[in-house]
Computed example of a mutant assay.
Amino acid sequence: IRTMAFLGNQTLISHFILLGLFTHSPLHLLLFSIIMAMFLVALSGNGLMILLINTDSRLHSPMYFFLSWLSLMDLMLISTIVPRMAIDYLLGHGSISFTGCGLQILFFLTLLGDECFLLAFMAYDRYVAISNPLRYSVVMSRRVCWLMVAGSWLLGLVDGLIQAVFTLRFPFCGSQEIDHFFCEVPAVLKLACADTSLYETMIYVCCVLMLLLPFSVISASYLRILITVLHMRSAEGRQKAFATCSSHMAAVSLFYGAAMITYMRPQAYHSSKQDKAVSAFYTMITPMLNPLIYSLRNKEVAGALKKLLGRCSCGVGQN
């Protein structure tokens, strides 16, 4: 943990204070309760998706393999942010050390990067399944799927490490207050008492690449899927393809839309209120919605859930 030091007549701070998302007004108490309910829904929904995919043999396909990893990433992402925010709110203060802030940046950006690339691989998986079904099992073999997941984690980890290390190398003096509910890089950089313009430009370029490269793969995959679907003679086949892909496109739109608003805007255009609202969207709302998006219109997931509930009811009946 960083210790106190001096820079000229200014004292370098040893920790930050997170101002949080809410005050203790009745309205904000209600909003806090809603977020905690969303947190529980996200935990149970993503946990249930992981359980169903790993226990039901009908869901042992590349699409559901990627979906189980997406659920795990969502579960870890919301757990990185919400418990800490809730503790700070209940205790009435949000003091966080440099080490704690650095770890939060690392975990958050790693998981954010993981999801960017995993969503791109999921789009490619759907492209191969719909456009080239005869070679699907060869192209999307178990080994290839594991390499894609490992690549997502590796690229996300590299991005998280670079930004966490370089962000906290700046001297921070004067105000300790981060006007946010977690250590997000744009909010932390506002407290640096050094010129961060070059680093902000580097982060901007890095984030544009991290977001636009996977998004380009997603866009190209779904353009090819659309062309293939429009040439299908079977109305049932077109309907099934659209139903499968619409869920993924909804998840992509929610995640990438919020992430691009935060990380593809120059620092000068950031405001605390907007950053908090957008960050709350992709750190809390998206992890809660993803299991619902992928399960509500999915007959296979619904069938696996009925099968699991049937086993549980039989087990209770026997006892």
Rank of each mutant, 00 (worst) to 15 (best):
1 I>T: 13
4 M>G: 05
5 A>G: 15
11 T>V: 15
17 I>D: 13
17 I>L: 08
20 G>H: 01
28 H>T: 10
30 L>A: 11
32 F>A: 05
32 F>P: 02
33 S>Q: 14
33 S>K: 15
34 I>M: 07
39 F>E: 03
45 G>M: 08
54 N>L: 11
57 S>V: 09
59 L>M: 07
65 F>P: 07
67 L>R: 08
67 L>N: 02
68 S>T: 03
68 S>C: 15
68 S>A: 05
70 L>V: 11
70 L>H: 10
72 L>R: 13
73 M>F: 11
74 D>W: 05
77 L>C: 00
84 R>N: 11
89 Y>N: 01
93 H>E: 12
95 S>K: 14
95 S>Y: 06
97 S>L: 15
98 F>I: 00
99 T>G: 09
102 G>A: 12
104 Q>A: 12
106 L>V: 01
109 L>Y: 05
110 T>M: 10
112 L>D: 07
114 D>M: 05
116 C>G: 02
120 A>Q: 01
122 M>N: 14
123 A>E: 02
123 A>W: 06
124 Y>H: 08
125 D>H: 08
126 R>E: 02
129 A>N: 01
133 P>G: 00
136 Y>E: 00
136 Y>T: 00
136 Y>G: 00
141 S>E: 01
142 R>C: 03
142 R>L: 07
143 R>S: 11
144 V>M: 06
145 C>K: 11
148 M>E: 04
151 G>E: 11
153 W>H: 15
154 L>K: 15
157 L>C: 07
158 V>I: 06
159 D>L: 07
162 I>P: 11
166 F>H: 02
167 T>C: 10
169 R>Q: 14
172 F>Q: 01
176 Q>L: 15
178 I>N: 05
182 F>V: 00
183 C>D: 02
184 E>I: 12
185 V>Q: 00
188 V>M: 03
194 A>R: 06
194 A>N: 13
196 T>V: 08
198 L>V: 14
199 Y>N: 01
201 T>F: 07
203 I>A: 13
204 Y>E: 08
204 Y>W: 07
207 C>L: 11
211 L>D: 02
212 L>I: 09
212 L>Y: 09
213 L>C: 04
214 P>C: 03
216 S>C: 13
216 S>M: 14
219 S>I: 07
225 I>H: 09
225 I>G: 03
227 I>F: 09
229 V>K: 15
229 V>M: 13
236 E>R: 05
241 A>S: 02
245 C>I: 10
249 M>V: 11
252 V>I: 10
253 S>M: 10
258 A>K: 00
261 I>T: 04
262 T>I: 14
262 T>M: 14
267 Q>N: 10
268 A>C: 09
268 A>W: 04
269 Y>C: 09
271 S>K: 03
272 S>G: 10
272 S>V: 04
272 S>R: 11
273 K>L: 12
276 K>R: 06
279 S>D: 01
281 F>Y: 03
282 Y>N: 00
283 T>I: 05
284 M>E: 06
285 I>A: 06
289 L>A: 02
295 S>K: 09
295 S>A: 13
295 S>T: 03
296 L>T: 03
298 N>S: 13
301 V>Q: 07
302 A>Q: 14
303 G>S: 04
303 G>F: 10
303 G>K: 06
307 K>Q: 12
308 L>H: 10
309 L>K: 15
309 L>V: 14
311 R>G: 11
312 C>R: 15
313 S>V: 07
313 S>F: 04
319 N>M: 07
